[in-house]
């Protein structure tokens, strides 16, 4: 067993045994190959189910506000950023939270593997290699080949806030954020872009897995569920689906931490992140703001700074 897993388990054991927390929210092995599943450990006897690897793809921050009592949470960089935003927005109480920080090299994009080998029957991960036995064939991948798209542009693999760090930290390049994916979409013509989103939105079945997986979609009543006024009819078609997705993105403006949980949760493979990334880029370029990168900051829309680039304003 690797040291990180061992340390997570020991930390959890101690926290629970000493009564410092009521529950530890982490990951355990899932029922399918290359799948981890969120787990809630309530007593020190249960800590040995906790794991840590490249399959721990869910953003656990989504559970924090809904879980009663004092809780410890295993947090990657993106989970910690979501926690930071939740704290900035007064949704969670810092004193009720113990953050077990783990640096993350990225998670595996199972969809990419499944598209090539069919249903995954067995898989193992070791030394940066993933061996997969699929219904349509076997294949070995380098982790970098099947790293989730979100993680490829991640600039915060290390938790931005934590009570304890487990394992090594990852060296991060100091370059400015890169948005090649957004620029590629921006460089398309309006009609090409319209076609792209038409295709994407026609896949959406409005199951709201994206919204519910998102740690920052916490409205008590989502605008899609509101019936007075009624923003959407409940119809499942491209136009209504786009209104839902675009509405969600606007609500996440300056808040989205780009964890990719929405895209990974989508059972239909909708490129939800394309919209979020555009918004993230706009906020970065216009306000020089990255959300949830420290415990102290404020959300972009809650703060005014005379030094905002604000290129959209006509200045003297």
């Amino acid at each position: 067993m690797n040291k990180i897993i061992n340390d997570i388990r020991e930390t959890a054991r101690q926290l629970l045994a000493e009564g410092k927390v009521d529950v530890v929210i982490g990951y355990e092995k899932g029922s399918l190959p290359l799948k981890a599943t969120p787990c809630f450990v309530h007593s020190s006897e249960g800590v040995d189910s906790l794991i840590w690897d490249e399959t721990c793809e869910n953003n656990l921050a989504t559970y924090v506000a809904k879980t009663p009592g004092k809780k410890a949470i295993v947090a990657k960089g993106c989970d910690s950023r979501a926690l930071a935003v939740l704290l900035q927005e007064n949704q969670i109480v810092r004193d009720d939270l113990y953050i077990i920080g783990v640096s993350c090299h990225g998670v595996i994009d199972q969809r990419k593997i499944g598209a090539e080998v069919g249903e995954i029957l067995e898989a193992s991960i070791s030394d940066g290699k993933i061996s997969v036995k699929g219904m349509e064939g076997d294949k070995e991948y380098l982790f970098t080949e099947v790293k989730d798209a979100t993680c490829q542009t991640c600039r915060y693999p290390n938790p931005v806030m934590e009570d304890l760090h487990i394992g090594d930290t990852i060296e991060v390049s100091q370059e400015a954020a890169a948005f090649a994916d957004v620029e590629a979409l921006e460089s398309k013509s309006d009609s090409e872009r319209q076609e792209y989103f038409k295709e994407q939105m026609s896949k959406c079945i409005r199951c709201y897995a994206c919204r519910n997986a998102c740690p920052l979609c916490y409205c008590q009543e989502c605008f899609v569920d509101c019936n007075s006024p009624r923003w959407l009819t409940g119809g499942v078609n491209r136009a209504e689906n786009l209104l839902f997705q675009a509405g969600r993105v606007m609500h996440l403006a300056g808040r989205c931490v780009d964890c990719g949980a929405c895209s990974r949760a989508c059972p239909q493979g909708v490129d939800i992140r394309a919209l979020n990334r555009k918004m993230t880029k706009d906020v970065y370029v216009m306000y020089n703001h990255e959300s949830g990168i420290s415990e102290e900051g404020k959300p972009a829309l809650n703060e005014y700074s005379a030094n905002d680039p604000e290129q959209f304003l006509v200045k003297e």
Partner: peptide, 13 residues
């Protein structure tokens, strides 16, 4: 129910 995020994927599929 702890880990369920309450989406509709299971029902719709």
């Amino acid at each position: 129910q702890e880990k369920c995020i309450g989406c509709n994927v299971c029902s719709f599929s």
